[in-house]
Amino acid sequence: MSIQVYLVRRLFLIIPILIGLSLITFTISRIVPGDPVGLAAGPQATPEIRERLAAELGMDKSLPEQYINYMAGLLRGDFGESLYTRRQVADDLRTFIPATLELTLAAIIFASAIGIPMGIISALYQNKLPDHSARILSLFFVSFPAFWLAMIFQTQFGVNWDLAPVSGRFPRLDIPPNQITGLLTVDSLLALDFASFGRALEHLWLPALVLSFGALASITRITRASMLEALNNDSVKTERAIGIPWRVIVLKYVLRNAFIATLTIISLEFGWLMAGAVLVESIFDWPGLGLYLVESSLRLDFQPIMGITMMYGIIFSLVNILTDVAYGIIDPRIRYG
């Protein structure tokens, strides 16, 4: 099966999952709160206001009818309207998604840059001091509450040492680079605007570093385990017998074999970090999906909550597909099927 056919098939398989997810979010927003209209209208609302609001929201219809209307909207890319800000949820999502993606990607890069070498060194020095230290260190860091660490780092690096701005993605008064991908670091590079790149990076590194700690332990552990497996493979014995230098064996053969398992965990961690980003974003005022989710949840603003949850589901599914495609590129034995 060619990669294109495979991709299309996988994309189609997302549809039933998203329908299932929409059923769950719909249940959360319409059935769980006893009185969604009352929530939306507020405690002081008169019966007339409530009736008008119910009609406006389509909540005077039966639940199946409401669900069909919601799904019809989704197909048109209409996620409804926030009851609090009166903005279109779809517009808000478009604004906030790149911020979360940028933060999560940067955190994954940090976590891999620290975790993969730690895992490799652990495996090469199995059960020796570097191995034990790496294990304790990663458990040590993963146990910190991200929101608490974020607060401390923000004060220490941002306020006391003045090494990073304390909030946001970009200086409020500066003009951000033209939006191409929405990732400020990438966009500024594409525009060859290095001053903006510097400012974006200045804002990005600290929250990304804090976020990366959450993924460190498992990336280290899986890299270590898969390295050990690859090192114990018979092919390594053959290669040594032939007389290939150890360094070449490790760098050329073992790492490649070990990387497949690591790739799986990195893509799984991507989801975890997107969740962790909810907390980091709310500390650093990072204008992403997570901050949007927290604000909407505290206001019980259900249209955005549903939209955000769906969006996380879509992003996560796409990441999984990309991972599977990446397997095939790294490991030519894998056939798409």
């Binding site: 997107m274 019980l300 996560f316």
Partner: peptide
């Protein structure tokens, strides 16, 4: 398939939504 649906969304996100609703 039912389980997969829950696994498509990061746990914390869904937990926030469910708890806010409850």
């Amino acid at each position: 398939r039912f389980t997969d649906i829950f696994l498509t969304v990061p746990g914390l996100v869904l937990a926030i939504a469910v708890t806010a609703a409850l």
